[in-house]
Structure formats: structure tokens, C-alpha cells
Write a protein that binds this DNA or RNA. Sequence first.
DNA 1: TTAGCTGCAAAAGGTTTGCAAATTA
DNA 2: TAATTTGCAAACCTTTTGCAGCTAA
Lengths: 148, 148
Amino acid sequence: MTAVRRERILEQLRADGGRVTTARRALVTALLDADEHVTADDLAATVQAAHPDVHRSTIYRTLDALERLGVVEHVHLGHGRAIYHLSDEAHHHLVCETCGFVVEVPEQLFDDLATQVRSQYDFAIHPRHFAIIGRCGGCAAAPATASG
Amino acid sequence: MTAVRRERILEQLRADGGRVTTARRALVTALLDADEHVTADDLAATVQAAHPDVHRSTIYRTLDALERLGVVEHVHLGHGRAIYHLSDEAHHHLVCETCGFVVEVPEQLFDDLATQVRSQYDFAIHPRHFAIIGRCGGCAAAPATASG
DNA sequence: TTAGCTGCAAAAGGTTTGCAAATTA
DNA sequence: TAATTTGCAAACCTTTTGCAGCTAA
């Protein structure tokens, strides 16, 4: 079934006038196989395990192409680092500022907030693009250190 | 009145065992005079207008010291860029992904969300540290471009 | 006097870009 | 064939760091 999704994505690239190359095939495969929260670096490592010549810049350019097609999204978790995932796995990220643990929460949790913001501020939030920082239960007693 | 606030902040530095220097005085003044949403670069420019020798690294180190004292906070707006503001002006930031316009909203808007997240996920959100991305009313019709 | 700051230069970390060669459709 | 991608190297941007000299308390 992953194979079908993979072909569908590659076909989207072609339909957009793009080419399907070894590097792109490998990246799409890596995205489909990935756990959540993969960085560009993680993806590069996965791709390079099978295709050592694929350069990081190709990873970034392909991710950019896929993002323009709406296939993937990236989210900033802290500092400069971003994570990438398929758009259909959309959710929000809560990141513990102490231990870095990432909690995924459903989008609907933001529905009320989104409604209020839309009516009061004429602003349509799309809050997936940044993580929400806070403290997980386990760290609630410990002092904060890393945040970004 | 700004002068009083300035002295109070400088005194906090002293109380912490720190020194009050020309660079630090100038930076605190710049923070107090600043509009919202100043970057480290903006602050450096303001400080350097009066004190050309003050180096960017000093700006960062002083901002860091002030942040450890709880006097300022920084928020990530996109890409690597962060903005700084005084802690007592705490609020959330909605950033339009199309035009970059920043809307400030009160913290209380997040109260319900925070309550839900705490009870359902045992996670205490502190959502000021990242901006919320979306689309402002004016750009609602236009296609998205810049996001970060 | 001495702990704490400073400017400088250099590096780090993640991402982007110019280019000529290679490849896809 | 013509347009698109690629690898490489170098650049970019913001932030951090090591260090020796300077300075506030």
C-alpha cells in the first residue's frame, strides 16, 4: 500500500512538469517509511544509506518541491531545526522545553481557538507550522533549561 | 517613567552579580524604546547608532542575561529569526504567512486550550515561545508564499 | 583586586544558491 | 531536444564561542 502512495506522489511530481529521479524516488520512500518527526538530516541519512551520492541540497530542493505540491509540510520544533512529514498526517506538536519530548495532538483541539481568532481578529490560524512549547508531566517538577 | 523602569532593570542585573556597562545600558534603553517585534539585529542597530563599537555578540550575550533574569523573552517568528520583548508585555503572536503582518493577541485566548491540554495530555503549554502561523484577513484571497 | 564584560575573529548549524554536467520526458 | 535535476562547493544568516584585554564594583 505504501507502494501505491509512493507512485501517486511521484505522479504528482510528473503532473507538475517535474521529473522523477532516483533521488526523488528514494526521498519519497524515506518519507513514507519514516517515523514522525524526521529532520532533513534524518531523511538525508536514510536516502544516503541506499544512494550515497545524493546530496543534502537535493534533499532540501525535493522537499521544497513536495511542499509546493502540498504533499509534505515542515514544522519548526525549536532553534533552527525543522521536521518534515506528509500533509495527510497533520497534527500539532507540543514540545517539552525541558526534555524535548514531542506530544502529538489532534487538530480539533484548536478548533475553538481558531473560531475565536477568526471572528475577533480576522485571522485564519494554521498553527501547524510551529510547535507549541511547554512542559511535559514528567518534567513538571524539574527546572527548565533548553527551549530554543 | 521609562527611566525608572530602566534603572529597575539595571538594578536587577547588579543584584544578580552582574555589571552595568555602557553596552548594557544602551541595550536596555533600546528595549524600552522599541516597538514590538524587534530582532537582535534591530536592537544592535539601535544600540550602535549611539555606540558604534558595541558588537553583536554583546547584544546576544546581554539579551541572554536579561532572559535568564526573566526581564525579556524571545519568540520565533519564522526561519531562524527571533524577536525580543520585555516579559511584562507578554502576549501571543499570529503571523500572516503571506504578508508577514503580526497580530498580537492576549494570553487568555489560550486558556481553554491550555486547560484541555493539561487534563488530556498532562502537558503544560507555554505557547508564547513560537508564533502561530496563518493568514490575515487582507491576504485571505491571495495565494500563500512566504512562511518559514 | 577580581569577577564579570567586551570586541574581535572564527565557527557552528541549518539551509540556500550558482554552475556546469547529467538526466528525464 | 529541451527543460529539469543533480552534485559540488561556496555562501548565507542568525547565533555562539574562545580568548585576551578592559572595567565595574
